[in-house]
Nucleic acid binder design. Structure first.
Length: 331
RNA sequence: GGAUGGGUAUGCCUAGCGGCGAGGGCAGCGGACUGUAAAUCCGUCACAGAGAAACACCGCAGGUUCGAUUCCUGCCCCAUCCA
């Protein structure tokens, strides 16, 4: 670990709160860029990824290997067992804590990962109300099965017409969440969202979205899934299954896991599972791009605009210096 | 050479068995998203058009019919089987 050199003033870091977000659709090559970038700017990496938090889920989540980290500290990797539940609020808490600690060390936090929602939660410091009662949701889930989604949607329309209007009647999960929010907090979710949406980021940030032509990206996804299988994805999932992991767990909803689980259960052939993983991963990449497009203050970085990784890196570093570092080192 | 089954819209699979300007699925594309987010959900997907006017390759060409994607004939492809 040669990450001790501290060129930034800790107090100033806490005050200016610099933050780099480095993201992009799955398989664009975030990981490789992030490490080199971190080294160049004395950064530490915080993974904004809903699956890489789980231990024992390395291949399928495309987790960075220790030897690839090159001495750069990585946070929020391997912090939970696959049986445990993870969600945005938890992520936000942990990420915020990590950010403060990184400032203490005189370094710059770099949020890397493809979960846009997680990034948003820390970037705009969305406040989540304290909710511990899980029985409400369970009850609503039961009601959804017994009385149907339409019923719940109608119920939601009574207490929170705005949200009911916004959520499609088929979207069970989000209808349940909206109802749960109302029951637990006593006021409509739409009201909460309205105030949260106004928030300015407490950070001095740059939000980079790495991208490349769709067909190239899809080709890369195809190759990566094949590589995962060659690396032993099936035995990774087998081990998890033996450990007691089942499809209904949050962790097992990850791409590659649920499909291989189906294969292991004899629901489909391995070939079918692999095809599904590739297809779903493409869909996922697309959804990620939709998310980033909607995000306001992002800087799109097209890989094609650069001759090679070094050039891309040089750009990122120059951009970072221009927007953030100068503010940090000026007296 | 013979037998049988098929060819359905800019990609793939499939419904259709006389009123079809043609139903469904997939892929693709677009979108939503504030405690499951690698989740969940929505839209679009031949051309034309809010009009009684005109305009259409359901393999191709004819025929029957008021009317054919649907029936008949010939031809061209494809698949499997028999020679």
């Amino acid at each position: 670990m040669n990450f001790q050199n501290q060129i930034y003033d800790t107090e100033k870091l806490h005050k200016l709160r610099p933050l780099v977000v480095l993201t992009g659709p799955t398989a664009v090559g975030k990981t490789a860029v992030s490490v080199a970038f971190a080294k160049a700017i004395r950064g530490e990496i915080i993974s904004a990824d809903s699956m890489q938090v789980y231990r024992g889920m390395d291949i399928g989540s495309a987790k960075i290997r220790k030897d690839e980290m090159d001495g750069v500290p990585h946070h929020l990797l391997d912090i939970l067992e696959p049986e445990e539940i993870f969600n945005v609020m938890l992520f936000q808490q942990l990420a915020k804590k990590a950010i403060e600690e990184i400032y203490d060390r005189g370094h710059i936090p770099i949020l890397t990962g493809g979960t846009g929602f997680y990034i948003q939660s820390v970037l705009y410091d969305i406040s989540f109300t304290e909710e511990t009662d899980t029985s409400v949701r369970e009850q609503l889930e039961q009601e959804a099965i017994q009385k149907g989604v339409e019923y719940l949607h109608a119920e939601l329309a009574k207490v929170d017409p705005v949200t009911a209007e916004n959520i499609h009647a088929n979207n069970v999960k989000r209808i349940i969440r909206a109802l749960e929010f109302y029951k637990l907090n006593g006021y409509p979710l739409s009201q909460h969202n309205e105030t949260e949406r106004q928030k300015e980021s407490p950070y001095l940030f740059r939000y980079y979205v790495l991208n490349e032509p769709r067909d190239v990206l899809y080709g890369r996804i195809e190759k990566r899934v094949d590589q995962m299988l060659a690396d032993g994805l099936v035995s990774e999932v087998e081990a998890l299954k033996e450990k007691g992991c089942t499809r209904d767990m949050v962790s097992m909803q990850g791409l590659g896991y649920k499909e291989i689980l189906d294969y292991l259960a004899g629901i489909c052939t391995l070939e079918e599972a692999v095809e599904t993983i590739k297809k779903e991963t493409r869909h996922f990449a697309k959804r990620q791009l939709t998310w980033f497009r909607r995000e306001k203050e992002v800087s799109w970085v097209e890989k094609n605009d650069f001759a090679n990784t070094e050039a891309l890196l040089a750009f990122l570093i120059a951009d970072f210096k221009k927007h953030i570092e100068t503010k940090l080192i000026e007296k």
